[in-house]
Nucleic acid binder design. Structure first.
Length: 278
DNA sequence: ATGGGTACCTGTCTGC
DNA sequence: TGCAGACAGGTACCCA
């Protein structure tokens, strides 16, 4: 799935297609994904306008205005593990896991999610989106200036466990999933097993830089395309080709040539080089 | 408060 | 060829 770069690439791809367009219809084909899908989506959205698409962590926020009651709303969308968004023509037949369509005249935004870990929620903007229970708990944006070595050092001091699961904790920093946690730790030369609170200020600087570099490079490359992820134009990203350790168990480390090791942490696979990462 | 395990769901791959 | 089991990019929840 979609980690921060894939979500951002989707957002950037969708903007020129549908931002500012009037919604001509919408429908859901399943009662629920992770949560129940909004009821009467077509009724609520038809005639309204998609004002903007924002991103917070791995959530996409579709700002809707010109609703029938003259209010505004925001659709909160999460791609989960296997979700993807595409622009299709109105006559494109839906496939098995195509759960939601939002139509804009000659274009349809289609949400596909085989594993159904994704989410689409209606937020009526009576309260600010930042107050939504799912958004409220999110940590800092890793590409914001506020996230740096000093910030990281301060926050890691409170965490006793190994760094890798901590780096993936969206309550602390958003957007870093299994691939980019592994890649960022490799780039900064830090072992995924190292206790978070024992990482020095200097190495926190390196880690924060590595996170920013890894995520930015992935956005620039068009996201990863492991398995079933496709971005909005249906094309495949190419960051996967540049992974240094992720899914490279047994292959030579790009730094030292020793085999990349795979271990299990907090129920997830971790790939790293025991030589280069201490 | 923090951390670990589990659950959610389907598709794909591996090994018997 | 068939089938069971493991595993997959996320995250909320329960419990120690």
């Amino acid at each position: 799935m979609p980690e921060l770069p894939e979500v951002e690439v989707s957002r950037i791809g969708l903007l020129p297609e549908i931002k500012g367009r009037t919604i001509t219809g919408a429908l859901t084909r399943a009662p629920k994904l992770r949560y129940p899908l909004p009821a009467n989506l077509g009724q609520r959205l038809t005639g309204a306008r998609l004002a903007d698409i924002r991103r917070r962590g791995k959530y996409l926020l579709f700002d809707i205005d010109q609703l029938a009651d003259d209010r505004t709303a925001t659709l909160i969308l999460h791609l989960g593990m296997s979700g993807s968004l595409r622009i299709v023509t109105p006559n494109t037949p839906p496939q098995t896991h195509d759960h939601v369509d939002i139509a804009f005249g000659d274009k349809v935004l289609r949400f596909r999610d085989p594993r159904r870990f994704g989410a689409l929620l209606w937020h009526d903007n009576q309260s600010p989106i930042e107050a939504h229970s799912l958004i409220q708990v999110l940590g800092v944006e890793p590409l914001d200036a506020a996230f740096d070595g000093e910030w990281l050092h301060t926050h890691l001091r409170k965490r006793s466990g190994p760094i890798k699961p901590v780096l993936m904790d969206s309550h602390m920093v958003v957007g870093i999933g299994n691939i980019y946690a592994a890649e960022s730790l490799f780039l900064s030369g830090i072992s995924p097993l190292r206790s978070a609170q024992k990482i020095s200020a200097t190495r926190c600087d390196r880690l924060a830089d590595a996170v920013k570099k890894t995520l930015s490079a992935a956005v620039a490359a068009g996201g990863s395309s492991v398995r079933d992820y496709v971005h909005s134009d249906g094309g495949a990203g190419c960051f996967q080709l540049q992974c240094a350790v992720y899914e490279r168990e047994g292959e030579p480390c790009v730094g030292c040539g020793n085999p990349v090791r795979k271990i299990r942490q907090a129920g997830r696979s971790t790939f790293y080089c025991p030589q280069c990462q201490k």
